[in-house]
Design a protein around this nucleic acid. Structure first.
Lengths: 208, 208
DNA sequence: AATTGTTTTAAACAGTTGTTTAATAAATTT
DNA sequence: AAATTTATTAAACAACTGTTTAAAACAATT
């Protein structure tokens, strides 16, 4: 019906502006360091409108976090639940997909880690999804390596390694850029290289 | 002379209490989330004493950061500048040493990363030390792999991998413990396993 | 013992921040 | 067009936070 759509597209103009601005500032500075006035400034709207549309800073933050987490895991879900692809293919797809994602939003890992430290209560959403990984076909394939006596280590290690090799450079990005004297572009091409390298490395790690 | 020592041991009682409390709270909550009143409470002293001894919250934080960073790198320096040990030995020593360190202070990586996000100005200290790595014998040995045509990738990748494989599990520790249903003790033994595994993995990655 | 210097304390200050209010402007409905 | 609902604004509020103050307690020196 028209009313719903109109309302969405009209309100969204301000409401979406706030949400998008909040996403940017929260990601850059974290929850505590982000001031409601920062968000209002970034969105170029009146301070009171943030509370008018989202009730509180915390509710706005929660909303963004939940959305982000859901998006994050829904993307990986299609890869890791696919029973028709090999383990190697899945690893290639995961690495490729997340490095792309992170290149578009390089501050994101730092942001997540930041919120973990400050004890964000968005954990349940995160954990619920993390459980999904443990029950996935992908994880079964990882476990299979053990039964096939190809591997004698806890598959958790392999999972941690895959995720770590992808995410860690982004966490250390600012240090890396400055310490290694990398331009932003050089960092980017290093990460592009890793798209091909990480699956190879994991392959070598997995081989008996 | 006696005076200096006395002063140290007397002042230190309160001054050290504050510094130690600050280290604990800063590490647990980060700079912004830590309130001067938190530190005073943790140290069990009057609020004004924090400013009396350290002038400002920022100066206290800076002091702790500098000390921590110096300690961090001075320890690794003896390993990576040693021209008598092989690359493999160095990797084993680094992995062993830092995993031990981190097991004693598991919140530390989260804390560092957190401060990087909030744009801490302790960067220069960090970078100065990071430069040291690039100029070290260890890094020369890494580069050597290229000349020996044993490796065709940027040594930066290998360095990032070593550090990442060590540190990342600690960054994801809270998620990992909850998501994988690990007790603290189980996490500990996983990390102990990694002491042996990481050098092996890096070995495989390096092999041509 | 009196004086001087140092440490500790409770209270206050000034700036910041999340949120609310009450009035106005704009849009929608009747 | 009038009435009603929704959106926007400037200002204020109250709680919190880093820092300072001024007085008191304590220790060291003369």
């Amino acid at each position: 019906m028209a009313k719903g759509n109109e309302k969405q597209s009209i309100d969204a103009s301000t409401e979406e502006k706030i949400k998008e601005a909040a996403r940017v500032v929260f990601t850059r500075k974290g929850f505590v360091s982000t001031k409601v006035r920062d968000i209002a400034a970034e969105a170029d709207i009146n301070l009171a409108l943030v509370n008018y549309y989202f009730r509180s800073k915390q509710k706005l933050f929660d909303l963004i976090m939940i959305e982000t987490i859901e998006k994050l895991f829904s993307e990986i879900k299609v890869i890791i639940t696919d029973e028709s692809t090999s383990l190697n293919t899945k690893i290639e797809l995961i690495v490729d997909h997340y490095i792309d994602q992170l290149l578009n939003n390089p501050d994101f890992p730092l942001f997540i880690v930041n919120e973990i430290l400050s004890g964000s209560n968005k954990f349940p959403a995160f954990l619920k999804n993390a459980e999904m990984i443990k029950g996935s076909f992908f994880f079964k394939q990882l476990n299979q390596l053990n039964s096939d006596k190809k591997l004698e280590v806890n598959p958790i290690h392999i999972l941690v390694n895959i995720i770590g090799l992808i995410i860690f450079p982004f966490l250390g990005r600012r240090v890396l850029e400055k310490a290694a004297g990398l331009e932003e572009e050089a960092f980017r091409s290093l990460m592009e290289e890793r798209k091909k390298l990480i699956p190879i490395w994991i392959g070598k790690i997995i081989e008996s």
